[in-house]
Amino acid sequence: MTAALLEIGGLTKHFGGLAAVSNLDMTVHEGEIVGLMGPNGAGKTTVFNLITGLLRPSYGHVIFQGKEIGGKKPHVVAACGIGRTFQFAYLFPEFTVLENVIASFHLDPKCGFLEGVFNTSSYRRKEERILREASEILKLVGLEREKGVLGKNLPHGPQKLLTMARALAIKPKLLLLDEPVGGMHFDEVKHAISAIERIRAQGTTIVLVEHNMRLMRFCERIVVMNFGVKIAEGTYDEVRSHEQVMRAYFGHERVA
């Protein structure tokens, strides 16, 4: 039994009177791909925000590699090894695609501030290595041709691929993908899928939020949420025919 990488227990988040997430239990093991599904507003992005520190949990805990990370600041969580993409493709608009990825190597074992200032040879060598690795990542997600394009000029699909590239640069142990192919057209989706496959092959654990069923097939396990509560968990086939899941999506049990 592989070790539990991420453990969520009793996670709850209230906004005023509304419970966006209610008593969620979830475990993710190393090397898995776990899917997180649910209609819009189910609380999936909120869960991601709670894990990555953009929101503080009202109750419950988030344990990563045995350490409690609930309530920690986002940059601290990132330093622990959790990367994420955003549903809306946030990126650095004034940086080129390549610069976007290079910037993400911030957590790479750092040269100090002074070494950067004095432009020492070790600093330069490190930056060259980062440049090479950044180009590798761009190849991985299929953005190599766009590397000189400014972030704000990228069309939507490549923007989302870029957020994936950025999340990879921090060499995360756990990657949270929030609707990575949302709004992409058919060809772009193929790129994204092969990127995710290669990421998986490198051994990164993935939690995936998506509505696109082609992606959900990759998941070993799927957790389904509705109104902030987990309503089902299981393999793709189990979940697909689950009564409550169908009711959540379609309003009734059987598709006539």
Partner: peptide, 20 residues
């Protein structure tokens, strides 16, 4: 890299925090 980080937080503190 420090300068680059400065420009990063100027453009998007949110994205910057997600990369540490």
């Amino acid at each position: 890299r420090t300068g680059m980080n400065w420009m990063a937080i100027a453009q998007s503190p949110l994205v910057a925090s997600s990369i540490g």
